[in-house]
Design a binder for these strands. Structure first.
Length: 108
DNA sequence: GATATGACCGCAA
DNA sequence: TTTGCGGCCATAT
């Protein structure tokens, strides 16, 4: 048993939670962390998603920060891709680039 | 081992 | 609204 095994368990839980997010809905990092049993390990969720391979099947674009905003830099490609995918699923952005969590927030 | 940083969160002022 | 503080976990120095 090494550190990698622990990491895999946590990553697996995070992946499971992220994969459970229905289309057209979004969840915050804290939400995912809580459901994955990580408590307040929101940072771990962010790190894990950042480490995802390019060809992943995971709907990582449905994970945003608590402010209803995309954490990635606006000039980053991931930001653009995330926004586009969300709009494809019907998630609308505010004029400020924010998402109405009361409407699109995932409620398990 | 200690310190700093990071796709962060929640609360208080 | 913004700012500051503590908390979580992994990685780098």
């Amino acid at each position: 048993m090494n550190a990698a095994d622990q990491d895999i368990s946590r990553e697996q839980r995070i992946w499971q939670v992220v994969a459970s997010i229905p289309p057209g809905k979004v969840a915050s990092y804290g939400q995912v962390a809580q459901l994955a049993g990580l408590g307040r390990g929101a940072r771990l969720v962010g790190r894990t998603l950042h480490n995802l391979p390019r060809g992943t099947r995971l709907p990582w674009h449905r994970v945003i920060n608590a402010a209803g905003r995309i954490s990635l830099p606006a000039e980053s490609q991931g930001h653009d891709l995330q926004k586009q995918r969300l709009e494809e699923e019907g998630v609308l952005f505010n004029v400020s680039g924010k998402i109405n969590l009361s409407r699109f927030g995932w409620k398990p």
